[in-house]
Design a protein around this nucleic acid. Structure first.
Lengths: 158, 158
DNA sequence: CACAATTAAGTTGCGCACAATTAATTCGTG
DNA sequence: CACGAATTAATTGTGCGCAACTTAATTGTG
């Protein structure tokens, strides 16, 4: 209704475009990971484990920005599928360590082609990818900060 | 293990960054929309209705890239909250038209501030936003195309 | 006109994301 | 050492996204 409708609408569409792109990625990953019996979030967990070997749930959550409400059932499914094992730490019984089974490690070979096919599908070159990633990470930081501020000013004690 | 690990890992992170940015947006919208009693997907539906007044579910799905499996329950919730009404079209009884209630229309005023606050939170200027959106839309198209090709070559007749 | 193919919504089932809560363990401080 | 605060996972509940399927109406073709 005001004069800056165009501005406002455009802006709304950044999030919309972002959302669409994110879902498009998921769709492609879904197809590529189907044979491996992995979802995209499960694939991310496997990537982290292939790189680090073993991780406490806490650290996995920090790496992937996911909380236990998401990770606990996800890890349960990965364990049921024989890809990982979970065991309480002896040193700190609050902590649960996730590590690959032999089957989980072996899956790495079969997943080797995935990144290349994703890369090819984007049609972006390395510089473009780097640039896009940088912008997105900057955006994420800005949004996270704003959300925290809104949350604390909205109902907080000030 | 191969020489292009860096390339592969970077690439994986585009999707990761994208996903993170998308969730960060959701988080901020969640805070801003809380008072209105809307989720972000519900807000998108309301935006479409505020713009078009009334829409068949089919067209709503095309605008938002969502299918009936997602929209049907979402619209049911919006209807239960008194924001929209659904009625079967008289001309074509397969089609269901969604239109705003008075309460739904009135909500527009209260949502007027949201885009501005989102815009401010990104820290991006108009050109940057336009550019980012263009890249993301290009990416989405490329990924959608690739997913379709993978799907048809994976199990299709050719 | 009849009937197969198509189209539009809805339903079911599964997995993810996240808020809120709970349970168990560890830490910190008196 | 005791006990409250903090930390770590897990659980519960709600909503979204999507595949697969169902139901009902319309369209197209003979």
């Amino acid at each position: 209704m005001s004069s800056d409708d165009a501005h406002l609408r455009l802006d709304q569409q950044v999030c919309f475009s972002l959302n669409a792109a994110s879902r498009a990625f998921s769709g492609l990953y879904r197809v590529l990971l189907k044979d491996l019996g992995l979802t995209y979030p499960q694939y991310l967990v496997m990537l982290a484990l292939w790189e680090h070997g073993e991780l406490p749930v806490k650290q996995l959550g920090e790496l992937l920005r996911l909380d236990s409400g998401t990770l606990s059932p996800l890890l349960k499914r990965l364990e049921a599928a024989g890809r990982v094992r979970r065991e309480r730490s002896a040193r700190d019984e609050r902590s649960v360590h996730v590590r690959l089974t032999d089957e989980g490690s072996a899956l790495r070979e079969r997943a080797a082609l995935v990144p290349r096919r994703i890369s090819a599908a984007t049609g972006f070159d390395l510089d473009e990818i780097r640039d896009l990633r940088a912008r997105l990470d900057r955006l994420t930081d800005a949004l996270d900060t704003a959300a925290r501020e809104e949350a604390s000013s909205g109902s907080g004690a000030e």
